[in-house]
Design a protein around this nucleic acid. Sequence first.
RNA 1: GGGCGCGUGGUGUAGUCUGGUCUAACACGUCUCCCUGUCACGGAGAAGAUCGCCGGUUCAAAUCCGGUCGCGCCCGCCA
Length: 467
Amino acid sequence: MFRTHEVKDLPSVEIGTKVTLAGWVHRRRDHGPLIFIDLRNRRDLVQVVIREKDFSATEQEGLKEAIRPETVVQIQGTIQARKPGNENPNIATGKIEVIAEKVVIINSAATPPFVLDDPSVVVGEDIRMKYRYLDLRRERLQKNLLLRHEVVRAMRQYLIVRDFIEIETPYLSKSTPEGARDYLVPSRFQPGKFYALPQSPQQYKQLLMVAGLEKYFQIVRCFRDEDTRGDRQPEFTQLDIEMSFVEQEDILKLIEEMYIHLVKTVTPEKHITFQPFKRLSSAEAMSKYGTDKPDLRENKEDPNELAFAFILDFPMFEKKDDGSLGAVHHPFTRPRVNNVEELKITDPLAVLAEQYDFVLNGYEIGGGSMRTHDPKMLQAVFEILGHSPDDVQAQFGHLLEAFRYGVPPHGGIAPGIDRFVMILANEPNIREVIAFPKTGDGRDLMMDAPSSISEQQIKELHLRIIK
RNA sequence: GGGCGCGUGGUGUAGUCUGGUCUAACACGUCUCCCUGUCACGGAGAAGAUCGCCGGUUCAAAUCCGGUCGCGCCCGCCA
């Protein structure tokens, strides 16, 4: 046992109790014969008083090491009430202090490359990323990761009590031509073939509906090999949801109630502008605000305002740069038509989709749709998108095959977790709520990834590198 | 793929526009010494920077020009 108490529990410990604490030296105030150190354990601080006269000459030499900031120490001592006038109202343990009887240096620390105890110092991004484990010791990131934890925990709890089942889907999956660029993983067993990391578990969760799971969710990592932004990382986490025997309204209601609940429990200081959430058609949003993710806050200076909105009625198809048609969302989205015949005779660009975006303070924090569960309708959509029957068979044959065996009406949504936490934390950048984020060009400066691989690995994977 | 911004001791900045006063300043940190009630402790002192890199202009470059590298932001892209 390294410690008998956590620092945060000390205020309720009786005066005179002997305690053993362990943590990091946060700050030191060296008065010569009297040394104060603030001992840090998680985010909590307590003042330890070291009286030089209580220690032998050799022990005093060791103390020189102990008082280096960020050194890991174990302190044995006695809880003492601070004298009136000596209390520190700025820390939770400010009414007491620990009189040290023994100081054990567990691990002495080199001088950190940047100051950890001053939140006002803005350190360069590259240095923070290289020494991310030190950056994470700072209060800002400790707070953000804790907030993120609370959000995810509340999401899980909310869905689990409503009969949702959490199911994991594969990360090694299949590349699809639609959407973002895939991250690819070469196969050792199948020369020249590649897995793709999922951009989302879209097809898996629909197949779970075919499997009769009915209410699925997953806190899942998604991968997209595209350029990053302040609110975009190559890998990000979403709350993936899919439900059977529901309509669009059921999904919107679930999300609305869940997010009101999340805000209430995790950040009660925040207030929600629209209850129920504002709803706009995508056409309305574009004409009124010039964007399909409008910032609807009434006071943009208010750090506690949350203006949630649903954007509805997106078009099903759009013209791509090369003139061909693409799906605005994805091909599995249900077009708002009565039957296949109607879809075939309508101008594709006039067809709306049962698709919805979830928007908060000018950020898209999620999107979803009702899915086409009629195989004929799905075929018709693929035809409009210009996929040849062979192509459809190769790319989506497994899904169409599955849909032959009794598929329930279903739909889902996937709210992003990083962006939501970023907004709750009032952070300007998504990296501030991710423990180990990537740089703008997709690198991990701490691990130095991506990196070269050995000749042996290249050979095993049947690859050749062209420079 | 394109546009913009930034790069000066370990960290954060000033100085760059208007070249010489820069033999590079300040704060934090580090080191030495002093201090028994500090809590962003205080005091005295010290070390630490070829001003991202390469080249050019000039009597003279942190400063101007060209290139290059690094980091960030934005557009494209992100079903």
